[in-house]
Lab assay of single mutants.
Amino acid sequence: GTVHVGDKTYHFPTPDAAKKFAQEIAKKLNLQVTVKNGTWQVH
């Protein structure tokens, strides 16, 4: 899975790992999470 946070991109071996990371970052930074075609965006 891929997660975009601002101008950074993180790659994870599984979709679940990407989802978990995106949700944790969003919670920590009080941001929104959207997913499109398996790519997570934190914004």
Results as ranks from 00 to 15, higher is better:
Thr14His: 07
Lys20Val: 09
Lys36Gln: 11
Gly6Phe: 15
Lys8Cys: 12
Tyr10Trp: 07
Leu29Gln: 04
Asp16Lys: 10
Lys19Thr: 05
Val5Ile: 14
Val42Gln: 02
Lys27Gly: 07
Gly38Ala: 05
Ile25Tyr: 06
Val33Phe: 08
Thr14Asp: 09
Lys19Val: 05
Thr39Ser: 15
His11Ser: 07
Val35Thr: 07
Trp40His: 05
Phe21Gly: 01
Lys27Trp: 06
His11Thr: 09
Phe21Asn: 00
Ala26Gly: 08
Ala22Glu: 00
Pro15Asp: 12
Phe21Thr: 01
Thr14Ala: 04
Phe21Met: 03
Thr9His: 08
Lys36Asp: 11
Asn30Tyr: 04
Ala18Tyr: 01
Thr2Ile: 13
Asn37Arg: 03
Phe12Tyr: 02
Val5Thr: 03
His43Trp: 09
His11Met: 07
Asn37Ala: 05
Ile25Leu: 13
Lys8Glu: 07
His11Tyr: 13
Thr14Glu: 05
Val5Trp: 14
Gly6Gln: 06
Lys28Val: 08
Val42Pro: 04
Thr14Phe: 05
Val35Ala: 08
Ala22Tyr: 01
Glu24Leu: 12
Gly6Asp: 05
Phe12Ser: 00
Gly1Ala: 12
Leu29Asp: 04
Lys8Met: 10
Thr14Arg: 03
Gly1Thr: 12
Val5His: 05
Val5Gln: 02
His4Met: 15
Lys20Ser: 09
Ala17Pro: 00
Gln23Thr: 13
Tyr10His: 04
Lys28Ala: 10
Gly1Met: 10
Ala22Asp: 00
Phe21Pro: 00
Lys27Asn: 09
Phe12His: 01
His43Asp: 10
Thr14Ile: 03
Ala18Val: 02
Lys19Leu: 09
Val3Pro: 01
Trp40Ile: 13
Ala26Trp: 02
Thr2Pro: 02
Thr39Gln: 15
Val33Gln: 02
Trp40Val: 08
Lys8Tyr: 10
Lys36Trp: 09
Lys28Phe: 09
Val33Arg: 00
Pro15Tyr: 14
Val3Lys: 00
Asn30Ser: 07
Ala17Ile: 07
Phe12Glu: 00
Thr14Leu: 04
Lys19Tyr: 10
Asn37Val: 03
Val3Gln: 00
Ala26Gln: 03
Val3Ala: 04
Thr2Val: 12
Val42Ala: 03
Thr14Tyr: 05
Gly6Trp: 12
Asp7Asn: 14
Lys8Pro: 01
Asp16Asn: 10
Gly6Ala: 06
Val35Met: 14
Pro15Phe: 13
Lys36Phe: 09
Lys27Tyr: 07
Asp7Lys: 14
Lys27Met: 09
His4Gly: 04
